[in-house]
């Protein structure tokens, strides 16, 4: 597993690129910029990438993080790839439900289920 920086680790499993977020809290601008600068280069020039973002370590996030996910999904769309989210804890999943983003993103209970879906 490659540790891109303290905030994120990258692993290639079968036909997927798995980005494990190491941060417990994704708060405001600084956290967002660090994550964005780690993830966007993975997508650029990766036509058809299957990116799985694993949230198992994340216990808290703000609306700024939701904005980042939308930007990532738009970038994935540009390269005709697939974005899957997994291992989102119930409190954070509730934020997705409130904002209806659970209807926008493909969200899986486990990383294995996300990989199997590809």
């Amino acid at each position: 597993m490659d540790r891109v920086n303290p905030e994120i680790s990258i692993e290639r499993l079968k036909n997927a690129t798995v980005a494990l977020i190491n941060e417990e809290k994704i708060l405001q601008e600084h956290d967002i910029q660090v994550l964005e600068s780690s993830i966007m280069p993975l997508i650029e020039n990766s036509h058809g990438i299957n990116l799985i973002m694993n949230f198992s370590n994340v216990k808290f996030l703000t609306s700024s993080a939701l904005g980042l996910l939308i930007r990532i999904s738009k970038k994935i769309y540009e390269v005709e790839g697939t974005l899957l989210l997994c291992c989102i804890n119930p409190k954070i999943y509730q934020i997705f439900e409130i904002t209806r983003l659970n209807e926008v993103f493909a969200i899986f209970e486990s990383q294995e289920l996300a990989i199997e879906s590809l």
Binding site: S63, L66, L68, I70
Partner: peptide
């Protein structure tokens, strides 16, 4: 739904 901002107030109210 796919806008990158504008969810803060909804979360505060929720």
């Amino acid at each position: 739904l796919c806008k990158t901002s504008g969810r803060g107030m909804l979360l505060i109210r929720s």
